[in-house]
Amino acid sequence: MMALDESGRTAANHADPADPSRRRLLVGLLTAYTASLIPWALAQEVPDEQRGAFMALSAILVGRPSLDATQATRTYDALVANDARFPADAQALLALINERHIDPLQLQATLDNEHSPLAPLPRQIMRAWVLGVVGSGDSARCIAYESALNAVMVADVLKPPTYAYGSYGSWSGKPV
């Protein structure tokens, strides 16, 4: 069990969340172009540049207005555990997007066409966030299910399989 400090926060979350030096860090990782893709990131806190690059990339790829910080930590840690080069690759990919103003919809095709060594990265990050799966084959791990973003994105209409939709027959009505 994680130790709680006197204020009830976990040790891992000990730093003051309003610390402006942490807040500035993510802003500093973005250019005007990437900041325009994720304007909310200006208020996002990150503990270091590597996690900052991951958060920025994540935000660009999944296109959501906010990302859960706890799940981000869990996802990042799993991606690093899966591939020790992940932090450096993530920084390199963010730098590339910053530099060349690559549209998220063109990103995969661009990397594939250029045979970039970074080409697998967007899919790894997407799989982690939207499927809750990190790694592949025998080393694949599930890190999220109900909170995987593909469940969250349809949560107003569907429950994740194995969760009850509702009382008997509640599925007969028009969905939305």
Binding site: L37, I60, L61, V62, G63, R64, D103, P104, L105, L107, Q108, A109, D112, P122, R123, M126, V130, N150, M153, V154
Partner: peptide, 13 residues
């Protein structure tokens, strides 16, 4: 298909 960004959620739904 490499559909990323805001288009992902739109297409998913």
């Amino acid at each position: 298909e490499g559909v990323y960004g805001a288009e992902f959620e739109k297409q998913l739904r």
